[in-house]
């Protein structure tokens, strides 16, 4: 299993401004960004999140500006994976490039509830909801994307 944790569930169109507000963009230090992650949507997120936890959300996650800080903040907060029916195009790119795994799966986004325990296998795309004992299938990452994620992002991948 590549990711395992408790789910934080959010709605549709979670934009990059709530993921990391522009007022915190005077630095690109991941720890500093992580300390304010999701603050305008869920102020207690940062206190509650534990390493490995998973975000599940509605469609068009990450819409808005093209700031690379958004996936950096989520990743540095300890989140191991984001699952949604769809992601905004540039957020999708930036997440993979920053080494944050994100999976598109409408069934999982529908079936999984806040607080569920979930595990994910990136090579097969299988998402297992331990709490409800349900399984959902997302498209698996091809090998090179798995390598980018394993290398902690595009930079690590191309320096290998």
């Amino acid at each position: 299993m590549d990711a395992k944790g408790k789910v934080f569930k959010y709605g549709e169109n979670v934009d990059t401004d709530v993921i990391i507000p522009a007022r915190y963009l005077n630095t690109s230090d991941p720890d500093h960004l992580a300390a304010h992650c999701m603050v305008d949507l869920d102020p207690s997120f940062v206190e509650r999140v534990k390493p490995g936890d998973i975000i599940v959300a509605g469609r068009n996650f990450g819409c808005g500006s093209s700031r690379e800080h958004a996936p950096v903040a989520i990743k540095a907060a300890g989140v191991s994976c984001v699952i949604a029916p769809s992601f905004a195009r540039i957020f999708y790119r930036n997440s993979i490039n920053m080494g944050l795994p994100i999976l598109e799966c409408a069934e999982a986004a529908e079936g999984i509830e806040d607080g569920d325990e979930v595990e994910v296998d990136f090579s097969s795309g299988m998402i297992h909801n331990i709490t409800k004992d349900e399984t959902y299938k997302a498209q698996a990452f091809p090998e090179f994307i798995q390598k980018i994620i394993a290398s902690n992002g595009l930079i690590g991948y191309i320096t290998k």
Binding site: I90, N94, M98, I145, I148, I158
Partner: peptide, 20 residues
């Protein structure tokens, strides 16, 4: 198509980019 600065930096080095 348009991309971010990390894509640009890596593509300058490798001549490649990933796409969906």
């Amino acid at each position: 198509t348009g991309v971010g600065s990390t894509d640009l930096g890596c593509a300058m080095a490798t001549g490649k980019a990933w796409f969906k």
